[in-house]
Design a protein around this nucleic acid. Structure first.
Length: 255
DNA sequence: ATGGTAGAACGTCTA
């Protein structure tokens, strides 16, 4: 099984790129973030033509998450206890043997900003939800745009980003509390080195200069670790015309 | 340089 996560930054704009990438990469499950679409406008028919069933939780203009799969996702959850949140940032569903939780983590804007406090509170509520999900579903996959670079290997210029939003210690500790539920950052099962990024700012030629961060993650439960075969960051779509600022990330599981 | 670019929407927010 090949699973993937991609922040598409507007599914309306990126639909042709998504279908091209689906045809080339042939993933079995795909988590999307920043669809920026109301559910009534979700391109269900176009994705069905590409061979994917879809479940989604969207809103106008901002946020929005979706899970695509070869078979119909089951037991869909869009709202979790303790988060009465109009922002559509979380979507859980069962696909085949997997429990899949798609996250579009709050960006946070800047350390100390009210949005940063919302980010940390949001992550704690999500951690509580994931703890319960993991108890019920050992084959748990938690993936998406985490808006946190786990450590300095995931940052092009750690000095410049020191204690800034996406890299601050409280954010990294919030992520660590989630991985301590027994959820491994699958990319690091295969690649220990620095300099592998999944997001590059649109400005100042950041992609061309590889000035990026690795903030798009696929976490897997301990029970899935023996099945992990390969993890990639596919930079190719970031080179296309009018790209998302994020690259798709993938994990191959022998399951 | 509190800039720069992109998306949604058409002024201004979000990232």
């Amino acid at each position: 099984m090949k699973i993937a996560s991609w922040n598409v930054n507007s599914l309306k704009v990126r639909l042709p790129q998504l279908t091209e990438w689906l045809a080339a990469a042939q993933p079995d499950v795909v988590a999307l973030q920043e669809t920026k679409l109301e559910d009534a406008r979700f391109p269900r028919d176009e994705l069905a033509a590409a061979g994917y069933r879809a479940v989604f939780a969207g809103q106008k203009s901002y946020n929005g998450v979706a899970i695509l799969a070869r078979e119909e996702p089951r037991e869909v959850v869009t709202d979790i206890p303790g988060l009465d949140d109009p922002q559509r940032r979380i979507l859980a569903a069962s696909v085949g043997p997997l429990r899949v939780v798609d996250l579009y983590v709050v960006n946070g804007k800047a350390v100390g900003d009210p949005k940063y406090a919302y980010k940390l509170a949001w992550l704690e509520k999500v951690r509580e939800f994931l703890a319960r999900e993991h108890e019920r579903h050992p084959h748990l996959v938690v993936l998406g745009d985490f808006n946190i670079a786990p450590d300095d290997r995931d940052v092009h210029d750690p000095a410049a980003w020191h204690e800034r939003v996406l890299c601050s210690t409280p954010e990294r500790e919030a992520l660590r509390r989630i991985t301590e539920l027994g959820l491994a950052d699958s990319f690091r099962l295969f690649e220990p080195g620095a300099g592998h990024f999944s997001w590059w700012d649109y400005r100042q030629g950041a992609f061309r200069r590889n000035l990026g961060l690795r903030i798009d993650l696929i976490l897997i439960g301990e029970a899935l670790k023996p099945a992990a075969r390969a993890a990639t960051i596919d930079r190719e779509p970031r080179r296309w015309e009018r790209p998302s600022d994020h690259a798709p990330v993938t994990l191959e599981l022998d399951i």
